[in-house]
Nucleic acid binder design. Structure first.
Length: 836
RNA sequence: GCCCUGGUGGCGGAAUCGGUAGACGCGUCGGACUUAAAAUCCGGUUGGAGUUAAAUCCAGUGCCAGUUCAAGUCUGGCCCAGGGCACCA
């Protein structure tokens, strides 16, 4: 065995051998239980970044650990390869998006192999290849036939920079998620997937996801945004029309003093009197001009204009005016709001500004005010400098006076139901998912338009609808796909007459909403996947990826799984049983990014230190879920550690044998060493099993290595027993390290005469009786403070421990002349003497 | 404003059940080896008091209370940081 560690040499060698010998193939049929470990697949942007390295290393170690523990592990990889960057690169360099993408995939595949990841490459999935997007299109058609995909004219988010519409989830603070360009509203006819049909079940089933973090579940719950309330309908005095409002506060209905409709409200013209028409039109025109960001900005002063018409409150018979104001949103609820300034901060601000009346109908739930006088609404009113939004009891509310406001919500809505002017209503914030994109590099939406027959799905036997190659990427203001001479004109599948193809492609998030299913049966050319295989492998046992997909990809995938279950394509209802959201990789306290110039190129690390160092380091300093601060010194430290491991083994190689036999009775120092190995096996196994705490796993590698060095350093010559102990320690160490330092351990395994691959051996086991020190350190406290530590036999009884503690000179001194009130004994650990 | 996560040395972080706070590493300081450097090895490193040196003592896990023989850990009330949602009625 060589004296020095040459990672570059051994890593290349083993990567080649593993590939030749198909070490990481996953058989579909096996007696072992299945385990599906999955990393979020990457967009082939060009090169791997450290975030990828972290993500894939975490999943790889999990996959290898599970394999060594007797599971048949599925650990695949693929490419989320449709999307705008490829198209932009094509426009910039005059290349084809496909060529650009293929080159990137080839380069990144090489990098993934250099990292020593245990993928079954036979299951590779590439979303931009026709053999994959054929099935994306097929699934779209199944959704269409079920009424879950539909086209409608709607106000949609438009990014001028990207030249396409965006889903709500892709608009962050009013800006495009990809390019940060301000998003505008446009009225366009677009394709949607009906995710709102699943709003309730997507929310409810979050409870089933016990293997997900609360942060992600809360984000999804907030995004779905369920609220319980009522629809109340108000008759317009002037023309008899009805204006329905959605409210979560039906208990405040007696306090309505005006009503607001959004500027875009559909019936707003009918609700406006001729005298007010001009002012209302001007206000609406102004609202249209404003960007979403301006309109939603929080500190904006509220504005509005009266429409001139009035409604009657069916509860009180009171007449109140209608206004339009842009603090009412057309897309939420009914687009109209009942205003109760006394009990809503927004209405309060508005009423103050326009001098509208404020009527108190809820007061704090107490019978006396600060002066000991009974509360009354008129006394409460002058003190009202802001809306009272807390719980309380009703006043000024006829028969509901004195009722608790929570009870009143139900009672008042019930009265509206009985009177025919209202209903209970559950409202969600979630909108349908806009999936059409006016771009080239995506899966074509498989429909055609016929003047006679309307929208027609492409027959399934004509799939895939291939992307045309004869396109001009230099066009501005429209999708390159529209420049194709061969793509657009086709025949109607229904009447055979002339028809046009849909030129929009699908959001890439559609492609990525089902890729994890395809891995179970990646080469199927009859179906997206067979039901047997998908049911066998899914759900994913451990999914690992970035928190940035907390809503987007993870919500869409959950929706897809539920929809495909309802289509009968699979039998489970959640795709990802356990989710690990890894933290970001930081450098100098901020996220690695090209613009900040603080990136570290994985290639350089592989070249200078080897993949094993990179793997070890990326797992070492922080728990996986937390952000990880990259430090060059830290990399250096991990490299030194691997060298230290190498030297430990190479300098003792002649004394290590894989076929060792440990005698049952050992010398004291050898017994202690064996115990330390058992402690390490137990600790490392538990740390991996328990939330994948790889940082402590690695600190335990170091402790074990330090202990073996210490033990060895005390011996000048080794007898047979010593050699067996050394062999046991070293063999255990390399097995424990094999999921992380995949190449080094394989090399050492073979240098020591091992057969096959260390990655096929079983995970070491520990003996519970040996996984602890031979004696205990008894901690002696006086009044809860540590005062002495005594080595003791662990077999001692409580009374013996107590006696031992009291026999300590130190304790005698401290307790002298004082009364021992109480003595607490924690077996095998601690004695606390309470004195006065 | 609401929700989630977190707050421990110079730094990353460790501490199954409430039971030795600071494992392991980085950095740093000192030493060994060397003509020298690198590499390697050994030792110190929470703060304060104390001592020639040690022993030893006191304080200490964001803040304030509480429960307990014992609190980083449990309870109540705050403060701060990061993230998510938000004129959503």
């Amino acid at each position: 065995m060589k004296d020095a560690y040459f990672p570059q040499e051994i890593e290349k060698k083993w990567q080649k051998i593993w590939e030749e010998k198909d070490v990481f193939k996953t058989p579909d049929n096996s007696d072992k239980p299945k385990y599906y470990a999955l990393s979020m697949f990457p967009y082939p942007s060009g090169k791997l970044h450290m975030g990828h390295v972290r993500n894939y290393t975490i999943t790889d170690v999990i996959a290898r650990f599970k394999k060594m523990n007797g599971y048949n592990v599925l650990h695949p990889m693929g490419w989320d390869s449709f999307g705008l960057p490829a198209e932009n690169a094509a426009m910039k360099h005059g290349a084809n998006p496909e060529t650009w993408t293929d080159e990137n995939i080839a380069y990144m595949t090489k990098q993934l192999k250099m990292l020593g990841l245990s993928y079954d490459w036979d299951r590779e999935v590439t979303t931009c290849k026709p053999d994959y997007y054929k099935w994306t299109q097929w699934l779209f058609l199944q959704l269409y036939k079920k009424g879950l995909a539909y086209k409608k004219e709607a106000a949609v988010n438009w990014c001028e920079e990207c030249g396409t519409v965006l889903a709500n989830e892709q608009v962050i603070d009013g800006k495009c998620w990809r390019c940060d360009h301000v998003v505008e509203k446009k009225y366009l006819s677009q394709w949607f997937l009906k995710i709102t049909d699943y709003a309730e079940v997507l929310l409810e089933d979050l409870d089933k996801l016990t293997g997900w973090g609360d942060n992600v579940k809360t984000m999804q719950a907030n995004w779905i945004g369920k609220s319980q309330g009522a629809i109340l309908k108000f008759k317009v005095v002037e023309n008899g029309l009805e204006v329905p409002v959605y409210t979560t506060r039906p208990d405040t209905v007696h306090g309505i003093t005006y009503l607001v409709v959004a500027p875009e409200y559909k019936d707003i013209e009918k609700l406006t009197t001729p005298e007010n028409k001009e002012a209302v039109e001007a206000y609406r025109a102004n609202a249209r001009k404003m960007t979403e960001i301006e309109r939603l900005s929080n500190d904006r002063v509220k504005t509005g204009v009266p429409l001139g018409t009035h409604c009657i409150n069916p509860f009180t018979g009171e007449k109140f005016p209608l206004w339009t104001a842009d603090y009412a949103l057309v897309e939420y609820g009914t687009g109209a709001v009942m205003a109760v300034p006394a009990h809503d901060t927004r209405d309060f601000d508005f009423a103050k500004k326009y001098n509208l009346p404020i009527k108190v109908v809820i007061i704090p739930d107490t019978t006396k005010d600060d002066n000991g006088l009974p509360y009354c609404p008129t006394a409460f009113l002058p003190s009202l400098t802001e809306a009272y939004t807390e719980p309380g009891v009703l006043v000024n509310s006829n028969e509901f006076d004195g009722m608790n406001n929570e009870d009143a919500k139900k009672a008042i809505t019930q009265k509206a139901v009985d009177g025919g002017f209202g209903e209970f209503k559950t409202q969600y914030r979630l909108r349908d998912w806009l999936v059409s994109r006016q771009r080239y590099w995506g899966a074509p939406i498989p429909v055609v338009y016929c003047d006679k027959c309307g929208i027609q799905p492409v027959p399934e036997d004509q799939l895939p609808v291939l992307l045309p190659k004869d396109v001009d990427f230099s066009v501005v203001g429209k999708s390159p796909i529209t420049t194709s001479k061969t793509f657009i004109n086709t025949t109607c599948p229904c009447c055979g007459g002339p028809a046009r193809r849909e030129t929009d492609t699908m959001d890439t998030f559609v492609c990525s909403s089902w890729y994890y299913l395809r891995y179970s049966d990646a080469k199927n050319d009859k179906m997206p996947f067979s039901k047997d295989k998908v049911n066998k492998w899914l759900p994913v046992d451990q999914y690992v990826g970035g928190i940035e997909h907390a809503i987007l990809h993870l919500l869409y995938s959950r929706f897809f799984t539920k929809a495909l279950r309802d289509l009968g394509l699979l039998d489970f209802d959640e795709p990802f049983k356990n989710l690990l959201t890894q933290g970001m990789v930081l450098k100098d306290g901020s996220k690695m990014s090209k613009s900040k110039g603080n990136t570290v190129d994985p290639d350089e690390i592989f070249e200078n230190y080897g993949a094993d160092t990179a793997r070890l380091f990326i797992l070492s300093d922080s728990p996986p879920a937390r952000d990880f601060d990259w430090s060059d010194a830290g990399v250096e430290g991990c490299y030194k550690f691997l060298n230290r491991v190498w030297r430990l083994i190479s300098s003792n190689a002649d004394d290590i044998s894989l076929a060792y036999t440990l005698p049952s009775v050992l010398k004291k120092e050898n017994d202690d060493m064996v115990r330390l190995v058992h402690i390490a096996i137990k600790g490392i196994t538990n740390d991996i099993s328990n939330d994948f705490q790889f940082n402590t796993v690695i600190s335990k590698y170091r402790e074990l290595v330090n202990a073996i060095y210490d033990w060895r350093g005390k011996k000048t010559q080794l007898d047979e027993e010593d050699k067996a102990v050394l062999s046991f320690a070293i063999v255990s160490l390399i097995k424990l390290m094999s999921p992380v330092a995949v190449h080094l351990t394989e090399e050492v395994w073979h240098e020591l005469g091992g057969e096959g691959s260390i990655h096929d051996v079983d995970w070491p086991e520990w003996d519970e009786n040996l996984a602890k020190a031979s004696s205990i350190t008894l901690v002696v406290q006086v009044n809860g403070k540590v005062k002495d530590k005594i080595e003791a036999d662990e077999a001692l009884s409580e009374d013996e421990l107590k006696a031992l503690a009291l026999s300590s000179e130190k304790i005698k001194e401290l307790t002298e002349g004082k009364t021992i009130v109480k003595t607490i004994v924690v077996p095998k650990k601690l004695v606390n003497i309470v004195v006065k």
